[in-house]
């Protein structure tokens, strides 16, 4: 019996998300008195793989095969399902990003295993197996019973603290590739954003809404983000108007994020916006309207003009950093 956690890598490296997954899997495994096996696809150095043992993986299976160069969802799912069977996995843990969203449902059908996606806490109980997850875009939560012998969970990003629980590093290399006849997608071109902090990875996000008034006013917001090592974001009308790029838009129809800190600057706090950011640990609202709904979601608020408040925040952060 095992808990199997599936890991992607980015140019041969893992990121915080990967270690969150292993930390989570390892706590679930403790509840089931079973070991965690980490499954990594693609070329990753031993020194990087070893980090997975630090977060509690008892064994790392590293699969290197040329056919894994293209993320073909059907072929990948087939290969993972095989490993799950060989390792007698009772729980599979994946990320709740697009790769996890692609694989979890396919694995569910292959293994006849119930899925709960976007879980943010450890299972409520394991007998019966009940997990807690967000529903109605954060307006409520549900306890979901998974009735099957094998369970599949995707973990909401930034929802679980990293926990070190070192195990000896045991690595099994495998060259077993996916079934080539299943590969029906062909990647023609890859465009990777470089340099920028990814919105979905960021611990701090500074976001502006229509209250910023015009695209020319964004400089102090961007400066604040830069000083804090934060990603920038915006509300939907802002990206619709072309003030900011589309990949910055958060909310129900944009990115769904859960940073430690979210600055909502000149954002009214419509339910569709909150749907994307309500899992943030802290929300700061800056708004001229004391009745703006964003203040109901926020822990810290400033009632005032964003364009006057922002430079003051920039100054204060500079001062903090100089100390």
């Amino acid at each position: 019996m095992s808990v199997l956690v599936f890991l992607e890598n980015w140019d041969g490296r893992f990121k915080k998300l990967s270690f969150e997954l292993v930390s989570y899997a390892s706590k679930v495994a403790d509840m089931l008195y079973s070991p965690v096996i980490a499954l990594s696809f693609g070329q990753v150095d031993a020194s990087e793989l070893e980090k997975l043992a630090t977060y509690g993986a008892s064994k790392v299976i590293s699969v290197e095969n040329d056919l894994l160069g293209t993320f073909d969802e059907q072929a990948f799912a087939g290969l993972i399902a095989g490993v799950a069977q060989n390792t007698d996995a009772k729980v599979l843990v994946l990320a709740n990003n697009n790769a996890g969203k692609a694989l979890a449902p396919r694995l569910s059908v292959r293994l006849k295993a119930g899925v709960a996606s976007g879980v943010s806490k450890l299972p409520v109980s394991t007998e019966p197996f009940v997990v807690y997850k967000k529903v109605y875009s954060g307006k409520a939560f549900a306890n979901i019973l998974i009735k099957t012998d094998i369970k599949i969970l995707t973990l909401a990003q930034n929802s679980f603290e990293l926990v070190e629980s070192p195990k000896p590093f045991v690595c099994e290399k495998s060259a077993a590739g996916p079934d080539g006849s299943l590969i029906k997608t062909q990647v023609k071109e890859v465009q990777i954003q470089s340099g920028k902090i990814l919105l979905t990875d960021a611990d701090i996000v500074v976001s502006g809404g229509r209250g910023m008034k015009s695209p020319e006013n964004w400089a102090p917001l961007v400066e604040l983000a830069g000083l804090l090592g934060a990603a920038t974001a915006c509300s939907r009308p802002v990206s619709d108007e072309g003030w900011r790029s589309h990949d910055e838009h958060t909310g129900q129809t944009g990115k769904i994020i859960a940073p430690n800190l979210y600055f909502a600057i000149g954002i009214s706090g419509a339910t569709q916006h909150l749907a994307g950011i309500s899992s943030s640990k802290f929300i700061v609202a800056i708004n001229t309207d004391k009745d703006a709904p964003i203040f109901e979601a926020a822990q810290y608020g400033i009632i005032g003009d964003a364009l006057k408040v922002l430079p003051k925040l920039v100054e204060a952060v500079k001062e903090m950093k100089s100390k």
Partner: peptide, 10 residues
């Protein structure tokens, strides 16, 4: 394969 046990408000 799954069912909702119950809902909770945030």
């Amino acid at each position: 394969l799954t069912e909702v046990v119950d809902y909770e408000m945030p």
